[in-house]
Design a protein around this nucleic acid. Structure first.
Length: 266
DNA sequence: ACATTGACCTGAGAGC
DNA sequence: TGCTCTCAGGTCAATG
């Protein structure tokens, strides 16, 4: 689930539900996911306090706790948040549970335990230490900034889009969608794209991510002419007469249209 | 410096 | 039904 659009939705969900409420208790902390902090210390930081704001950078969520520091959540492959009242409603595999004084709970769910939970003093410093690139939807991340990231790269464009140090937020499925809409083959070399292709790619990157967020908010699915609804081998391309194919790129299975994303591109 | 591979976890679905 | 195999929207350490 969690690439930039998903995490942005989690951020809004957190903001709409869990701010400004005193935390009565913290439970079910999975130590396997904790990094740089003990269960006891995390509890101490949270209990009796409340969240003041929530921010996002790439796939990371930062929740500010009054006068204390920041809870950092990363969702791995299978993470999400659940705000609920009654115990019977609780999802399985909650790895961090915060019980508020109003009787509600916020659960951080992660079936596969590939996410992480940490505690930091300053998000800016954390982002620098992790060497994360600019958030893919940040205002400062303009076309020029994007194009400069493509220089001196030896790998594929799909690999670059998924590289969190080059730019933060895009993963396997949204990189497929962006390349699909830009008409660029996932194995093209990042450094060899034509200027017009770079511009087109930047445009698609921004609109795909923003549109995906808007679709989530409207509780609509992805648009019909996107790749994602038919992202499967042998499916008909929604935009041309081609067929969807699977291809291993940068260690992941990617999908593309053999016809309008040919390797010899425009 | 950069890119690729396998390992880390758990569960779902396909095929027999 | 139950077994085995493959795959899953991520990242890190080890390797090329």
């Amino acid at each position: 689930m969690p690439e930039l659009p998903d995490v942005e939705i989690f951020r809004r969900y957190f903001q709409a539900t869990a701010l400004h409420q005193e935390i009565e208790a913290v439970k079910d902390i999975s130590t396997a996911l904790l990094e740089g902090i003990s269960r006891e210390n995390l509890e101490k930081h949270l209990v009796g306090r409340s969240f003041r704001s929530v921010h996002r950078h790439g796939k990371y969520l930062f929740a500010k706790v009054e006068a204390e520091g920041w809870l950092v959540l990363h969702f791995g492959m299978s993470g999400f948040l659940q705000y609920y009242k009654n115990k019977e409603q609780a999802e399985e595999h909650i790895r961090l549970l915060m019980a508020f004084c109003n009787g509600f709970h916020l659960g951080y769910v992660s079936t596969r335990k590939l996410g992480r939970i940490t505690w930091i003093a300053d998000p800016k410093r954390f982002i620098a230490e992790q060497e994360l690139g600019p958030d893919a939807l940040a205002e400062q991340f303009d076309e020029h900034a994007f194009r400069s990231r493509l220089e001196h790269r030896r790998g594929s464009i799909k690999g670059l889009l998924m590289n969190q140090q080059a730019l933060a937020g895009i993963g396997n499925i949204y990189s497929d969608e962006i390349l699909y809409q830009a008409g660029i083959h996932p194995r093209r070399k990042a450094a060899e794209l034509q200027v017009a292709e770079q511009q087109q790619l930047y445009h698609c990157l921004r609109t795909v991510l923003q549109t995906a967020i808007d679709c989530h908010v409207g509780e609509k699915g992805w648009p019909d002419d996107w790749l994602l609804p038919v992202r499967e081998s042998g499916q008909a391309c929604p935009r041309c007469s081609g067929k969807i194919q699977r291809l291993k790129v940068a260690g992941r299975n990617g999908y593309f249209c053999e016809n309008h994303q040919s390797y010899e591109s425009s």
